[in-house]
Design a protein around this nucleic acid. Structure first.
Length: 531
DNA sequence: TTAGGGTTAG
């Protein structure tokens, strides 16, 4: 009879899709005397929170049970920990559980840890894990490694837990690699990755994504090539093993975009189709971004048009493509299409950075200022320092320095290097040496060790004839041993990226390269020599 | 029932 009822409840839950049906089922179960039966409460809770995404009513189901068991506590903690803004609630439920007769088990800890966003909180859960004897469970250990590595100052604790593990699998290795890369420690991340005996797709993705996010694009691409090589050479050929998936493709396309590697980007686009990968919104947006950054606006637009479910990032990526190409009309047209298409997508702070950049490149001062106002007044977006940077760039390039300075004075945060740099740039264009001196001084104040700023200030003093100041700046630069970071440019030829640094002469073909440049420019140029 | 990997700006 009981078995029949269990089956019946499962069958009904498989068929219903509305909260009222769930309430009816709940009433029937109460009539049958099961209002406090943990098993059914658990079933109803899971259905309500997962299938109906109604955590509010799921909470009521939980509250209705006088003495919830470990399954119900795990279910409610799982539900809250998977949400963005309910971490403190997860924790308070866990505390309530500890105050009840119910003891934690190994299944509940990973969820509690997922909600622990402070180092001291993880430490207290860690102590609880030791106290209750669950530290030997690999999944619990991995959760500790992952959680510690995600909080400020937690990497050493993550490494310590990892070092004390008796058996380490690919998942805990990946958690640690991701931790180092997230913290920007690429060297340690790659070192741990090198130590991995087994590497699966998420492990490769973690290291490729980490390199890309830290600006190590060539390393990310090198690792992608290695992944493809290993997958192709593995048992069963390219059809089996750790083939790059959509996540890999998204990570490596981002690297291709930043490194302007169009040919590789195209090869990956082909790979997506050859291997039947679904072009979801992530893949589509990554392709749009890659084509845009590599200079092929036409293909970027083609991929964008093919996306049937354009989300905020899709629109933003396309706006940024146009902005990058200085095509302000295109950027504005996409923005207008975005707000008028009725899809309910609202612009965010990234949208306006793209739009303001586009207006700056097109010299559309009035429209740019209008978009800044629209962002604040219509969409309630608080301007970030990047928006101020764009606005000052826009005004500075147009020579509207009084307005630019009013914006600087009205900023709710301290102006940064981008803000003063934009103003300085405008001053140079319009010959406002007096204001340029002011901006350059600010830049030197912010970063006294940046030789580039010092040299700019010295040059401005030179233009003003302030030779004592010129001497002072150069003396300080020499004392500090501050040098300007050399300008760098790169080009992709035959699938290889060649980097060129200003004035460097270390390349064995230096003389030959300079001769070519000389024949091109008609004079001895000191442009770029490859490193 | 529990653990690791994804795009856009600056």
């Amino acid at each position: 009879m009981k078995r029949n009822l269990n089956e019946l409840v499962s069958t009904i839950l498989n068929k219903i899709n509305h909260i009222n049906h769930l309430k009816q089922l709940q009433s029937h179960l109460t009539t049958l005397g099961h209002s406090q039966t943990h098993f059914y409460a658990f079933k109803l809770f899971r259905f309500c929170s997962i299938k109906l995404s109604n955590l509010h009513y799921a909470q009521q189901i939980f509250n209705h049970i006088h003495s919830p068991n470990i399954y119900l506590f795990t279910a409610i903690i799982t539900a809250y920990s998977s949400q963005q803004n309910n971490h403190s609630l997860t924790f308070s439920i866990f505390k309530n559980m500890l105050n009840s007769p119910i003891r934690p088990n190994n299944f509940i800890y990973p969820h509690v840890l997922k909600s622990s966003k402070e180092r001291f909180l993880i430490g207290s859960v860690h102590a609880q894990i030791v106290k209750t004897g669950f530290l030997e469970y690999p999944v619990v250990q991995t959760s500790l490694v992952d959680s510690y590595s995600k909080v400020l100052g937690g990497l050493r604790d993550a490494q310590k837990v990892f070092d004390e593990m008796s058996e380490r699998n690919v998942v805990c290795f990946t958690a640690l690699v991701s931790g180092y890369l997230r913290a920007g420690d690429v060297e340690c991340g790659l070192k741990v990755f090198d130590e991995m005996v087994e590497r699966d797709v998420p492990a490769w993705n973690a290291v490729i994504s980490g390199c890309t996010q830290n600006g190590f694009f060539s390393e990310g691409i090198r690792l992608f090539r290695e992944m493809v090589f290993v997958a192709a050479a593995g048992e069963g050929g390219f059809c089996k093993g750790n083939k790059p998936n959509q996540v890999t493709v998204v990570c490596v396309l981002s690297a291709c975009g930043h490194a302007s590697m169009l040919q590789l980007g195209k090869w990956i686009h082909g790979y997506v189709y050859r291997h039947g990968l679904v072009v979801d919104s992530f893949v589509s947006n990554a392709l749009v971004d890659m084509y845009g950054k590599c200079g092929n606006l036409e293909l970027a637009r083609k991929v964008f048009e093919m996306d049937q479910c354009k989300g905020l990032t899709s629109w933003n990526s396309m706006i940024n493509c146009y902005a990058l190409h200085g095509n302000c009309e295109g950027a504005i047209a996409i923005f207008e299409q975005m707000v008028e298409c009725g899809s309910g997508v609202r612009p965010d702070e990234v949208t306006f950075i793209g739009l303001l950049n586009a207006c700056t490149h097109g010299g559309l001062v009035k429209q740019g200022c209008g978009y800044f106002d629209m962002m604040v007044k219509k969409y309630g977006i608080v301007p970030q320092i990047e928006h101020y940077g764009c606005l000052i760039d826009l005004l500075g390039r147009a020579g509207r320095f009084d307005e630019a300075m009013d914006v600087v004075k009205g900023m709710s945060m301290e102006p940064d290097e981008v803000v003063w740099g934009s103003l300085l740039n405008g001053c140079k264009v319009h010959g406002r040496t007096d204001l340029a001196e002011f901006a350059a001084k600010k830049l030197v104040e912010i970063d006294p060790h940046n030789g580039g700023y010092g040299i700019m200030l010295a040059n401005i003093y030179g233009e003003l004839g302030k030779w004592d100041e010129v001497r002072n700046v150069w003396c300080k630069l020499k004392q500090q041993k501050s040098y300007k970071i050399p300008g760098c440019s790169w080009i992709e030829v035959d699938d290889k990226v060649h980097q060129f640094y200003s004035l460097d002469q270390s390349n064995p073909k230096t003389e030959e390269l300079y001769s070519v440049l000389e024949s091109l420019f008609g004079y001895r140029s000191e442009v770029m020599i490859e490193m």
